[in-house]
Amino acid sequence: MACHSHHYWPDVTLDAVNAYWQDAAQMADSKWEKIFGEKIPAFQRGIASALNHPAPQQIALAPNTHELVYRLISAFDLNQPLRILTTDGEFYSFARQLLRLEELPNVEVVRVATQPFATLPQRFEQELQSGRYHLAYASQVFFDSGVAFPGLLELAARKPDTTQMVIDGYHAFFARPTDLSAIADKVFYTAGSYKYLGAGEGMCFMTIPRNCELRPLNTGWFAEMAELENRAEGVGFGNDWLRFAGATMDYSPLYKALAVLDLYESEGISVTSIHNYVLGNQQRFLAAMDDAQHPLLNHDNLIAHDLENGHGHFFTFRCGSAENAEKLQEELRQKNVLCDRRQQLLRLGFALYHPQEETFARLFT
């Protein structure tokens, strides 16, 4: 039940790694033609299909989302004032980066409290619509609670044109059905294959609005891939995903991600069917929890907003202290139940590979 952190990999990923090794060993430098000409476009189409994104060629790739987000930040002139709007519930990577940026005298960060969740959209949008911010950043599903930001996509559609906006979709991608068609040219959406896709680390992406003219300061030689043999003077940028491309990376994660996407397609498994299956798991868990009256795993300690429509694929419980969370985690481990914790918070995740006959009652005994 730590699948929100690390999904188990389908067996097809082993063949995918071997296929990448064979291509790299046999084709040497010629492998780039296959990777950029076949594999990357196939991955982009798969991601675009999962997100109902109309422009697959606008999906940039990198080993992690932090690289992509910082490349976006590097497009701002850090000699000028930079005002950033975010929440107090963002993942460590972005939160740490903001703390470092705030050491610069010209960077201002405003963090809107996520709780109470019911009023978060109004409070966040009020700040966003002020027009003060160059960059806004918010998670679709918060990593610490599992709560989905209510109405975030609709809110993003109304953002000021003067504000660039990033949606961190990592805990929603391939978990919650997501339709980006209305905001594809208004926001940057970032996620990756490590969690719910089940393809492992090292393959992340960020969608780029088609009208984007930003010139990242952090830019790599892949950004010139289309013009490598006829390099012009100066630093030019393409009008597709290569505008945010970096440099040499290991593409075995790309092969793994493609293998999983192909597997789900061949089995007729969609994000919607996964989500509905997980909702069934969660409902059985909640029923067992209500029957058990556990001292820690109960409704009073569950961080939630709308359990039916406004939640990701894991539950988070307040345990009162880090010691309580650690003790409960160990008790569950003794029952062969794997989970994880963040200080006093204990997280329990749900996945497609949990059998339908699992009642979850053994967690509470």
Rank of each mutant, 00 (worst) to 15 (best):
L78W: 15
T162K: 04
D262T: 15
L217Q: 07
S93H: 04
Y255T: 02
S30K: 14
A351V: 05
Q97I: 09
F237I: 05
H313Q: 15
V271L: 07
F317T: 00
V110G: 03
R158C: 06
R83K: 15
L279I: 08
K256T: 09
A226T: 06
Q344N: 15
A148E: 07
D29W: 11
D306R: 05
A24T: 10
F317S: 04
Y264N: 06
A28N: 13
R45T: 15
S139W: 02
P253S: 12
T163A: 09
Y137P: 02
D290G: 11
L14W: 14
S49G: 12
H6W: 11
M1G: 15
C3N: 09
L228F: 13
M289F: 00
Q293P: 00
S181H: 12
H354N: 07
Q44I: 09
T163P: 00
D240V: 12
R215K: 14
V271F: 03
L254K: 05
S74L: 10
P56K: 01
H134A: 10
E90K: 03
C212F: 08
L263R: 15
A16H: 10
S145Q: 05
M206K: 04
N298Q: 05
L328M: 07
P54T: 09
A232L: 10
H171Q: 13
F173G: 02
V235R: 15
V107R: 01
V12E: 11
L258C: 06
A60D: 01
R132N: 12
L85W: 04
Y8G: 13
A287V: 08
V110D: 13
A156M: 09
K159W: 00
E213M: 14
L85Y: 05
I167E: 01
Q26Y: 10
D23I: 15
Q343T: 07
E326N: 13
T114S: 04
F317D: 04
S266H: 06
K195W: 07
Q57W: 09
L297I: 03
R176L: 15
L51Y: 01
F222L: 12
E331A: 14
R333C: 07
S74H: 10
Y264I: 08
G246K: 08
A288R: 03
P209Q: 11
G320T: 01
G37L: 11
E229W: 10
A157R: 09
F91L: 08
H7R: 09
R347E: 06
D77H: 07
